[in-house]
Design a protein around this nucleic acid. Structure first.
Lengths: 391, 391
DNA sequence: ACGAATTAGTTTGATGCCTGAACTTATCGA
DNA sequence: TCGATAAGTTCAGGCATCAAACTAATTCGT
C-alpha cells in the first residue's frame, strides 16, 4: 500500500506543468487562452506555467494567432524547436542505428551502420557510434537531454537481463559505457513509436518480425510491461506443439515457426527483398510460406487478443512489408481463435513507420520523459546548464 | 494526452489523506508520530489530516501506545470499527450471497441463499435479498456507504454486457434495481479479496473453477482489467484444438475441458464432496480426471504466465479444494510451457479464502474505494449525513 | 525526589501555488 | 472614433504544507 510519496505544492506544479505542456504538444499553435480552456486551469495559472516553460526553452512563442472576428489576437505557443533533443541508439544483432529527435518528435538525423554485434567489441563500437551521434547533434547546435537505448532482449530496471540474439546476460550498459541511459526493449520502443507517430490508436499490439519476434502491447496509450518488464514476450510462445526445436530449447516456438528466417527458408528466398519480389510475381512457394507463417502468428497473437482484449494488431518491421500477404490468413486465424471477434472484430493494420521504429521510439522516450515531467527536467537539467554557460 | 484534470491544493489534500489513511490501514496501532515517519509527512500535517479523518469517523483513537524507553507515549489510531461499512452481493447461477464488512475488511455477517437465478424473477429476488441485508446492517447500527455486486459475466463500465450462465445481455443493474452499485466481475472480485485478505502477494493470477472458469489477474497490487474490462477472460481460451464443443460455439475451450462439470463427469462423482472423498481414498478415475483437467488448466494458464510474466498462480473456489491433486500435474504443464520457469519458477498456491471470496471482494471494493479517496467520501457522504442527523 | 533527556503532539509563521476579479492591451465593426 | 470582444497580466485571498518553537508525558540517572 505504501509506496506513494507525500504531496506538496510542488506536486501540483509538476502536474499542471505537464498538463499544460501536454496540451501544447497536442494542439500545436494554441494560445494561452486556448490552453486555459483546454486544461481547465485559469488564464493566470497558464501564463505563469507557460512563462516558466519558455524560460526553460521547452516552449517558444510564435506568430500572433490568425482568426476572424473582434478581440485581441493571442500569441501562439508551441514546442520549442531549439529545446532539448532526444537521442536514440538501437543495438541490433547486425547493425547499429542512431536517431535524433526534437521535442515534436521530428527526426533531425538518422544513421544506420551495419556490423555484426555478436562480438565482445560491441561496447567499444557502440561507444564510438554514440560519440559520433553526439558530435552531429552538437554540429546542429542542439542540446541532447538524454539517450534511449533499444536492445533486442529482456530489460529489467535498466539492466539487460537476457538478449539471446546478442549473447548477453545481465549486462549493465550504463556501467559498461560509463553513462546513464534509458534502456528498453526494442519491440516496446517500436510500439511506443507507433503510438506516438503512427496510426493513433490507443490500444493495440505491435508485432515486428526481424531476427526475433517482438511484441509491444499498448493499452490505454501506455505500454504494458508486465510484472518484471517481460510483458508481451511472445517470441517463445509455443504455437506448434511438437514442432521443430527452437534455439531456446523448447519446441515449436512462434519465433521458430514464423520468424524471418523460417519464412525465407520455406520460400527459398535469400533476402526479404527477394521474398517480396517473389510474392509480387505470385510465386507459390513464397505465398505458401507467408501464409503458413501467418497462421502461426495468428495462433500466438490470438492468446494476446483473448487475454488482453486488445482490439487491433499493428504489423511492423518486416511484417509491415509482408502485410498484403499476411493480412488474410492472419485475420482468418484470429477470427477462428478469438471468440470476441464475433461482436467486436480485430483490426489489422500496417505500421506506417519503417524498420526505424525502435530507434525512433528510443529517442522519443527521452523527450516523452521531459514532456511528462517538465518540472523535473527544469530542476535537474536547467540549473546546471545555466551555471555551465553563464559563468 | 489530455484527460488529466488540473490540480490544486485540494488535490494534495486528497493524496495525503489517502496516504495517511493507507498507512493507518497497513499498520494497525500506529501513532501520529509513527505515521509521520511512515508517510514522510510532517507531524503537523499528519495531525491535521488525522483530525479530519477522526471527524469523519473513518479513524478512531485508541489506547496509549505500549512501549519501553523514555518519552511520551503516543495515542494509537486505527480504522474506526463504527465507520462506514461495505455491503457485497453476489449473484451466482444458483445462489445469492451477501456480506457486510467494516473498514478493516472484517466480516460482520455473511448469508447465502440457494435459488436458481436463471429466471426473470432474479431482480425481485436480488432486491429483496438486498433489503434484508440492509436491515441486518441497520440492526448492527452501522451505516452502509456502498454496495458492490459480483456477477458471473463480462462487466463494462457498470453494465453487464454478457453473463451467459445467467442468460443476461446488456443488463443495467443500477437501472433495474433503482440504485447505484459498483458492479464487477465475480472472478475479479475474488482475486481482489485474495489480494486484500489472502496470501499477500503483489502479483498473481487467481483462478477459480465453479460452473464457469474465471480468472482475475493482479499486477502490482492492482487488478488488470484489459481494454474493455475483459482482461483475464480465460474460460474460453482454446486449450484442446478439435476437442468437444463448448456451449459458446467453439471447440475445446478451457471451461469445457477443465470446468467442474467435466471433472465430475470424468470422475463419475456426483458432487465435489464426493469427488474429494474419492480422491482421498485413491480412486483411479477421480485422480485421472483431476490430472487431465490440471493439464488443460496448465495450457490455459501458461499463456497468462508467458504473456504477463505473472510469478504465481492462486487456486480458488473449487480448485482450492482440489489443490493437493491439481498441484503436481499443473506445475508440470506450466514448467513445460513457460520458458521463464527455467530461471524464475512459478509458484502455485491454494487460496485460504473459501467460496465466499467473490462476495467478500465485492464488499471490500466498496471500503477500498473509501480508503483510496477518503476526501471524496468525506465531501459526498458526510455533509448529507450530518445535516440529516444534526437538524 | 528531582531534573535532564527523550518522545508525542500542537501551535504559529512562512512559503508556494492556484483562483477570481479587476485591469491593460489589441483588434474589429459601425 | 467609440464600443464590444477577446488575450494576457497583476494582485489580493485562500489553502495546504513545512519548519521550528512550544507544551505534554514519561523514563532514567543521580
Amino acid at each position: 500500500m505504501i509506496g506513494t510519496r507525500p504531496a506538496g505544492q510542488h506536486t501540483v506544479r509538476q502536474h499542471n506543468s505537464a498538463l499544460v505542456l501536454g496540451a501544447i504538444a497536442d494542439g500545436p499553435g494554441t494560445s494561452r487562452a486556448g490552453l486555459s480552456t483546454a486544461t481547465g486551469l485559469t488564464k493566470a495559472t497558464v501564463s505563469s506555467v507557460v512563462d516558466r516553460l519558455i524560460a526553460a526553452d521547452l516552449v517558444a512563442e510564435g506568430e500572433p494567432e490568425q482568426r476572424v472576428g473582434p478581440g485581441r489576437r493571442g500569441t501562439v505557443v508551441s514546442l520549442s524547436p531549439s529545446g532539448p533533443h532526444g537521442l536514440g541508439i538501437e543495438i541490433g544483432v547486425d547493425y547499429l542505428a542512431s536517431c535524433l529527435v526534437d521535442l515534436n518528435g521530428t527526426v533531425r538525423f538518422e544513421e544506420v551502420r551495419y556490423a555484426d554485434n555478436r562480438t565482445p567489441q560491441v561496447f567499444h563500437r557502440v561507444s564510438a557510434f554514440l560519440r559520433k551521434a553526439r558530435k552531429r547533434a552538437e554540429a546542429l547546435g542542439v542540446s541532447v537531454c538524454g539517450v534511449g537505448v533499444a536492445v533486442p532482449g529482456l530489460v529489467e530496471s535498466g539492466l539487460v537481463r537476457l538478449a539471446p540474439n546478442l549473447g548477453w546476460r545481465d549486462v549493465d550498459l550504463a556501467d559498461r559505457l560509463g553513462e546513464a541511459f534509458t534502456v528498453g526493449n526494442e519491440a516496446n520502443f517500436a510500439a511506443l513509436a507507433e503510438l506516438w507517430h503512427g496510426t493513433a490508436l490507443p490500444d493495440f499490439v505491435h508485432v515486428s518480425g526481424e531476427i526475433g519476434i517482438g511484441a509491444g502491447i499498448v493499452l490505454e496509450r501506455a505500454l504494458f510491461e508486465g510484472v518484471r518488464g517481460a510483458g508481451g514476450e511472445i517470441g517463445h510462445l509455443p504455437v506448434a506443439p511438437g514442432g521443430p526445436p527452437c534455439s531456446c530449447g523448447a519446441n515449436g516456438c512462434l519465433e521458430r515457426m514464423a520468424g524471418q528466417e523460417e519464412i525465407l527458408r520455406l520460400s527459398g528466398a535469400a533476402t526479404v527483398d527477394d521474398l517480396v519480389s517473389a510474392l509480387e510475381s505470385g510465386s507459390g512457394a513464397a505465398l505458401s510460406a507467408v501464409s503458413t507463417a501467418a497462421g502461426h502468428l495468428g495462433v500466438g497473437l490470438s492468446t494476446v487478443v483473448n487475454l488482453m482484449d486488445v482490439p487491433a494488431v499493428v504489423l511492423g518491421g518486416t511484417y509491415a512489408r509482408l502485410e498484403p500477404w499476411l493480412r488474410e490468413p492472419l485475420l482468418a486465424e484470429l477470427e477462428r481463435r478469438v471468440p470476441s471477434t464475433a461482436w467486436s472484430p480485430v483490426r489489422i493494420l500496417r505500421s506506417p513507420l519503417g524498420t526505424g521504429a525502435a530507434v525512433r521510439g528510443a529517442a522519443g522516450s527521452v523527450i516523452r520523459g521531459v514532456l511528462a515531467d517538465p518540472e523535473h527536467y527544469l530542476t535537474t537539467h536547467w540549473p546546471s546548464d545555466r551555471d555551465a554557460r553563464g559563468r
